[in-house]
Computed example of a mutant assay.
Amino acid sequence: MLELRPTCENCNKSLPFDSDEAMICTFECTFCKSCVETILKQVCPNCGGGFEKRPIRPKHLLEKYPVSTKVVFKPAKP
């Protein structure tokens, strides 16, 4: 099950469970769409992989499968 991290690892922007801006790589590194497109150029700085839009977990499943509270903040080097 996806971890659904709450923020962008690069800019720390909030990415709630239903965000259309959340992007993930195969290791669930999580970034906002803006950072992926403009700063990271579609390449994960952690693993070198690409990104996909993070799926939205249905609201009725959040109690049973809550989103992560783990914040990872590692801004990419310019």
Score class of each variant (00 low, 15 high):
C29K: 05
C44G: 12
L4W: 15
D20L: 14
L4C: 03
L2P: 06
K13F: 04
T38K: 15
E9Q: 13
F31K: 00
D18H: 12
D20C: 09
T7E: 00
A22R: 13
K74H: 10
R54H: 04
F51I: 02
K33G: 00
K33D: 12
P58Q: 15
F17I: 01
K77I: 14
L2Q: 07
P75N: 08
P55N: 09
L40F: 07
C11H: 11
K77Q: 14
K33T: 02
L61N: 04
P6M: 04
T26K: 15
L62T: 05
T26W: 08
K64A: 15
D18G: 05
F31I: 01
C32Y: 06
E28S: 12
G50V: 01
C29N: 09
F31L: 00
F31P: 00
M23T: 01
T26C: 09
C25I: 07
G49H: 07
P66R: 05
K59Y: 07
R54S: 06
T26N: 12
I56M: 05
V71N: 01
A22E: 02
N12M: 05
K13E: 03
L15S: 12
P16Y: 08
K41A: 10
C32E: 03
P78W: 13
R5E: 08
E9G: 15
V43I: 15
E28I: 03
P78I: 12
E3L: 09
T30E: 07
C11Y: 10
C35I: 07
C35N: 02
I39R: 13
V71G: 02
D20G: 12
S68V: 03
T7S: 08
P75H: 08
L62Y: 02
L62M: 08
F17Q: 10
I56V: 14
F27W: 07
K74T: 13
T38P: 03
L61H: 12
P66N: 08
H60G: 08
F73K: 13
R54L: 05
K33P: 00
T7R: 04
N12P: 00
C47N: 10
E52F: 14
P78N: 14
E52V: 14
K13L: 13
P55A: 05
V67K: 07
P75K: 11
K70L: 13
P16A: 06
